[in-house]
């Protein structure tokens, strides 16, 4: 294939990846920004979203679009509830100690993974896309559903942005992020804000999971890679910075697509991981962010 269509394809793929990454990484970044904790179970919430979509598709008869629409709403809600529960039962009790949180969320991720294995099973399960149309370019075909992913992701991120800027909840979140003690003094229910943020972060991951599943499949170990990629995005973008995270998601989504055009994909992965480690060492505020050192 000539280089131009090759690059076009890599760009399209990069954009799709960037959209999914944007959602998962924003969830992670939000939680870190407000609560100052790293949620290692984030990838499992993503997986639960995908499994939820499969469950909806199995239980709800009729056109796949119906069950998909239901999944897009119900799955994140359930996952969010679960996350809020985990926050109340565990994270609050260890007082959001950063290190203890990492260890606890590793524990949560094992539990979620194994429960899924026991109920959902070890196989990868496919879900029908809500619509199916293959767009033919002169050189290659491309699934129209992937454009839908990009659209939904952009819409969701825009909504999140507006919410953070203009809603009361956003204000509370920003206040808590800015100064926890003062927020407490002003009567902001910090505990509840934390639970809400943790749930909201998980919901972002779950939405990404639902979106992705008609394109790939639901599988109980699928959360691992998005977790690592989101880590990378969040760090490069500057922990806790939303615009930085968005920029980094696009940058990394695109460069991952383009890099693996020219190099071995494993080598590309090595390079990007190493880059992230070095960014953290030498430029801990991230390439874009102004957020403080952790």
């Amino acid at each position: 294939m000539d280089i131009a269509p090759y690059l076009l394809l890599a760009t399209l793929e990069g954009l799709v990846q960037a959209s999914v990454l944007m959602l998962t990484a924003l969830g992670l970044s939000l939680v870190f920004g407000v609560m100052r904790v790293v949620n290692v179970a984030h990838g499992e919430f993503y997986m639960l979203g995908a499994v939820g979509a499969w469950l909806c598709a199995t239980l709800i008869p009729g056109h796949p679009a119906i069950s998909f629409a239901v999944a897009l709403i119900v799955a994140p809600l359930i996952v969010g509830l679960l996350a809020a529960l985990a926050d109340r039962a565990i994270l609050q009790r260890i007082n959001y100690n950063p290190e203890a949180t990492i260890v606890s969320t590793i524990g949560i991720s094992y539990i979620i993974q194994q429960l899924t294995l026991m109920t959902f099973g070890p196989d990868a399960r496919a879900v029908d896309p809500p619509f199916y149309y293959n767009i033919r370019f002169p050189w290659f075909g491309y699934s129209s559903y992937k454009f839908f992913i990009i659209g939904v992701a952009v819409a969701l991120v825009a909504t999140l942005w507006l919410l953070m800027k203009h809603s009361k909840m956003g204000l509370l979140m920003r206040a808590t992020q800015y100064d926890r003690e003062t927020a407490l003094n002003f009567g902001i229910p910090v505990g509840r804000v934390y639970s809400a943020v943790f749930a909201f972060g998980a919901m972002m991951a779950a939405v990404a999971g639902v979106l992705v599943v008609p394109n790939s499949q639901a599988h109980y170990l699928m959360g691992h890679d998005p977790l690592l990629m989101s880590f990378i995005v969040v760090i490069v973008g500057g922990l806790g910075s939303i615009p930085g995270t968005i920029a980094a998601a696009v940058l990394i989504g695109l460069s991952d697509g383009l890099l693996s055009v020219f190099f071995s994909p494993t080598l590309a992965k090595i390079a990007s991981t190493l880059l992230v480690a070095l960014v953290l060492v030498f430029k801990p505020q991230g390439l874009f962010g102004k957020a403080g050192r952790i």
Binding site: I102, L228, I294
Partner: peptide, 28 residues
């Protein structure tokens, strides 16, 4: 030499990333 320039959460993530690189190198 590198990782100890960071602390707490950054340190955890940096060590994680380096270990991931090491793992990928054994595959590469």
């Amino acid at each position: 030499l590198l990782a100890l320039r960071t602390q707490t959460v950054s340190f955890m993530i940096v060590t994680l990333m380096f270990a991931q690189v090491a793992y990928l190198l054994t595959l590469y």
